[in-house]
Design a protein around this nucleic acid. Structure first.
Lengths: 342, 342
DNA sequence: CTGTTAGCGCATTCAG
DNA sequence: CTGAATGCGCTAACAG
C-alpha cells in the first residue's frame, strides 16, 4: 500500500472553493463561476442546484484569485493626514457613501501630516493593486507624484486646488478662502485683526497667506498679530493662542482662527474671562463644523462642502474607471457664513 | 509568415512582474522573491543586481498573488456604525496606529447602525479574506455571528461587553456606566433627573437602562423625565430635547445626556435662554470628548479610554494571529469625571 | 448552455 | 546558495 495519494502536496487554505461547490452540485467549476457572476447564462435548474451547494458549504468567493485574473481589485485607497479630525470625517463619509454602492471597498490610511509617511504608504497601497487612489492636498513628494503618474490608475487630490495636479483635483483655494474671511472682518469694521493657527500644515499656511494678502491689500498691519503653534489643533490650543495674542496686543479687535476648533476654544475662554464676543473681540473660524452654528454666540466661519467634496472625488474616480468623461479640476467653492461672533 | 506567436494569449495586466525583474537581473524569479523577502538568503552580488532591476523597472509586488499562495492578506476589516462620530474616530486611531506598524492594512466600512447592513458587509469583507475582523458592539445578527464563528479568523467586538462574545470582547458595561453617572447626579443632591438621548442605538438603550435602574434603586421616579429621538445625534438635537423636556417638566434639576454632543448642545441652549448651569439645571454627558473639558461651564461626563480600547482590540487581534496568549474579555473601564456642570 | 484548457503572479516544495 | 516544477482559486478563451 504505497502512498499514491500525495502526502500533502496541496497547500490549500482549507477554505471552501469553487471546485468544492462544483463537485457537490455535480457541475464544472466554470459553471459555478458563471452562476454567480452572470446567473442568466446558466439554466434555472443548474443555478438552483449551485445556489444550494453554495449555501450548504458556506462558499465565499476569493477576491484575491479574482483580482489575479482580472487585475481589478475593487479597492480604492484613501490617504488622510488624520483620522480624528472631523473635517476628514465628513470627507470620508462622502467618499465611502459613493464608493460602496458601486461595489468598491476602501483601504484607509493615516499619513499623520507627513509626506514621508505618505510616500511610504503609497508604496504599500500600490501592492494592493488599488483601482484608484484618493490623496489629501497637493503637496505629495516628487517621487510619489512620479510613481503615481507612471502607474496609470486614476488619482484624486482632494481638499485643495493646485496648478499641477497628478490627475484629478477636487477642492477649493485655501488662499482665497483665507483672504475672503479676512476681508469680511475688515468690512465689519475691524482694523486690528489677529490670526491664530495650530498644526500649520500646508493648507493652514495658505489660509494664513490669504489673511496676510488681504491685510496688505487694505493697508493694514499684516505681520504683527499672528500666533501659531505646531501642536495639534484643539479647543485648548485655541484658548491658549487667543490668550497669548490678546495679552500681547490688547488693541486686537478681531481674531481669525485657522479652524473652528481653535475658534470655539477661544470663545469658551472668552466666556471664562468675561471677554464679550463680538463686542470686545470678534471671532471667526474655518470649516463651518456643526459646532459653529450651535455654540453661543454662534460662530462666523467659512463653509466648505466637505461631504459633497468627498462624493465628487469618489464619483470622478468611478467615472474614470468606467471611461466616462469627468472633469479633472473641480472647484467646490466656499462660502463665508457670518454669524453672531463677528 | 504565419502567426506562430500567439495573438494575445496572455491576459497580462501590463504590470511589471517578478519574472520581468528576474529576466533583467539574469536570475530566476524565485531568487528575486527571496531577495525581497529574505535578503540574507541571497548573495550580496545578486541582491544588488536584483535591487537595481527592481528600481529600474519600478517593480511592485502583487499582493493578490501573494495572498493566493499564502492565504494571508494582512488585511483587517473594521466595521463601524458611523464614520463621522468622533467617538469612533479615537477608536479608529487606536486601531490604525496598532495595526500599521505590524504590517496590517485596514479595510473600513460603515454599517450605519444597521445590523442588516452589517451582515451584508461582513459577507463582502469575507471575500477579501481578511486575517481578522473588528466589529462594533455586541448586537450582530445570529447568522452573522454563526458565519464568523465558522470562518475561524479572530474577531473582536469592541465598545461594549456582553455575555456571549463571538470571540474576543473589549469594552465596558454601558449599563454600569449609565447607572454610575445617574448615581453621581443623585449624590449631588438632585431628585428630578431627566434623560435625553438621540439615535437610541443599543448602547444608548443600555445607558438608559442603567439610568432607570439607578433611579429605581434610589426610589426616585424613573420614567417621567425621559425624552428620546431616533434622529442622529447633534448639538441641535441636544438643544431641542433639553428644551422639550424642561418645558414639560420644569421641576427637573439635572439632565443626563446620552452623549457629550447632546450635552454641549443643551448647554449652548441654556446659555441662550439664560438658564444657569448647574445652578438651575445640572448637565452631564457621556464619552468625555475634548469639548467636555473645554466648554464653559466644563462638562461632567463619563470618560472611556477610546483610543486605548482601539489599541487593545487591535493588539488582541495581532496576538491571536501570532498564537500569542490573549485574554478574550477585556474590561477597559470607565470613570465619572465631575466638572462644573453638575 | 456547459465543459476543457490554460494562465494571472507568486512562493512553497524539492533538487542541484 | 540557486533553480525547476507546481499549484493557490478563479475566469477568459475557445470548443462542444
Amino acid at each position: 500500500m504505497d502512498t499514491e495519494y500525495p502526502k500533502n502536496p496541496r497547500r490549500s487554505s482549507g477554505r471552501v472553493t469553487l471546485a468544492d461547490v462544483a463537485t457537490l452540485a455535480g457541475v464544472s467549476p466554470i459553471t459555478v463561476s458563471r452562476a454567480l457572476k452572470r446567473p442568466d447564462m446558466v439554466t434555472d435548474k443548474l443555478r438552483q442546484k449551485i445556489d444550494k451547494a453554495v449555501k450548504t458549504l458556506g462558499y465565499i468567493p476569493n477576491q484575491a484569485a479574482r483580482s489575479l485574473v482580472s487585475s481589478e481589485t475593487k479597492i480604492i485607497s484613501v490617504l488622510f493626514p488624520s483620522l480624528s479630525n472631523s473635517v476628514f470625517s465628513s470627507l470620508l463619509d462622502g467618499i465611502y457613501n459613493t464608493l460602496t454602492p458601486a461595489g468598491y471597498k476602501m483601504l484607509l490610511t493615516n499619513t499623520h501630516y507627513s509626506s514621508v509617511q505618505e510616500e511610504e504608504l503609497i508604496e504599500t497601497m500600490l501592492e494592493q493593486n488599488p483601482d484608484g487612489m484618493i490623496l489629501t492636498g497637493i503637496d505629495q513628494s516628487d517621487s510619489a507624484r512620479q510613481r503615481l503618474m507612471n502607474i496609470g490608475i486614476p488619482v484624486v487630490q482632494v481638499m485643495e486646488l493646485g496648478d499641477n495636479p497628478i490627475d484629478i483635483n477636487v477642492g477649493i483655494s485655501q488662499f482665497d478662502a483665507g483672504y475672503a474671511m479676512t476681508e469680511h472682518l475688515i468690512q465689519k469694521g475691524h482694523r486690528h485683526i489677529g490670526f491664530i493657527g495650530a498644526r500649520m500644515d500646508n493648507r493652514t499656511q495658505r489660509r494664513l497667506q490669504g489673511y496676510r494678502q488681504a491685510l496688505i491689500d487694505h493697508s493694514l498691519p499684516s505681520e504683527d498679530y499672528i500666533s501659531t503653534s505646531f501642536a495639534h489643533t484643539s479647543f485648548q490650543a485655541g484658548a491658549e493662542l487667543m490668550v497669548k495674542l490678546v495679552s500681547e496686543h490688547n488693541q486686537i479687535d478681531a481674531l481669525f482662527c485657522s479652524n473652528d476648533d481653535l475658534a470655539a476654544g477661544a470663545i469658551f475662554e472668552c466666556q471664562r474671562r468675561g471677554i464679550k464676543v463680538p463686542q470686545q473681540l470678534a471671532i471667526a473660524g474655518f470649516n463651518d463644523l456643526e459646532i459653529a452654528s450651535a455654540i453661543s454666540p454662534r460662530l462666523t466661519s467659512v463653509a466648505i462642502p466637505r461631504f459633497e467634496m468627498g462624493q465628487k472625488a469618489a464619483q470622478c474616480l468611478l467615472d474614470r474607471l468606467q471611461d466616462k468623461p469627468c472633469p479633472t479640476h473641480i472647484d467646490v467653492g466656499f462660502k463665508i457664513v457670518p454669524r453672531e461672533s463677528s
